[in-house]
């Protein structure tokens, strides 16, 4: 999940020659828990889809793959910025770290904006959550994911503010890494959601 994690961690992992697990044990409780919850939701979607393949395909045809793909790109890019930001903060770089987190946040806000454009376009064509089970899943799953993006954006805003000064305690580094891991999870969930909703044929 952490691109470039191994080289970024070299200097801070002196305590553990076996390599460094980003964040702390607790955040993995949250992340694996979230991923198993979402897996249950994805399974439920596929199950419903098997009952009405044609209807789900017709619903899928109404979605804009372009917006979906741009959003995927935005989240992937933001994950890269966040990984760079965590690395910069670990090296005590109080200029580069907040800049990277702010760029990551900008990508996240772009995602939210595009999602709004997408929803508005569907509403304008008279499509709502009640139109078809496909759209119940589409709106339900993407809204739930959007909630995660909002929370993650709040965390990135917090990191942008906090890394303007050097982090003082080991627990601050752990929290920063945990927030970064959460953002990567939000990214990863979208990477599963995008093909599931937009591409599966």
């Amino acid at each position: 999940m952490r691109r470039g994690g191994s080289d970024l961690m070299q200097d801070s992992s002196a305590v553990s020659p076996r390599g460094h697990i980003p964040g702390e044990a607790g955040v993995w409780l949250l992340i694996f828990g979230e991923m198993s919850f979402f897996t249950a939701l994805f399974a439920s979607f596929l199950h419903a889809r098997n009952g009405d393949v044609a209807g789900f395909a017709a619903g899928q045809a109404q979605l804009s793959r372009t917006i979906g793909a741009v959003n995927t790109l935005l989240l992937l890019t933001s994950s890269l910025f966040v990984a760079k930001g965590v690395g910069a903060a670990q090296q005590g770089d109080t200029i580069r770290a907040p800049r990277m987190f702010a760029l990551g946040l900008a990508c996240g806000l772009g995602f939210i904006l595009l999602k709004g454009v997408e929803y508005a376009g569907l509403f304008a064509r008279g499509i709502a959550v009640t139109s078809h089970p496909f759209f119940a899943y589409y709106f339900g799953l993407t809204a739930l994911h959007l909630g995660h993006v909002l929370i993650g954006s709040g965390l990135l805003a917090g990191l942008t503010a906090a890394t303007r000064r050097p982090l003082a305690k080991p627990s601050h580094f752990a929290l920063m890494e945990s927030a970064g891991c959460f953002w990567h999870m939000v990214d990863l969930l979208w990477i599963v959601l995008f093909p599931l909703l937009y591409l599966v044929a």
Binding site: L29, L30, S178
Partner: peptide, 10 residues
């Protein structure tokens, strides 16, 4: 404990 913080965050 911190793990409870994460459980609560979840």
């Amino acid at each position: 404990p911190r793990w409870l913080g994460y459980l609560t965050a979840w």
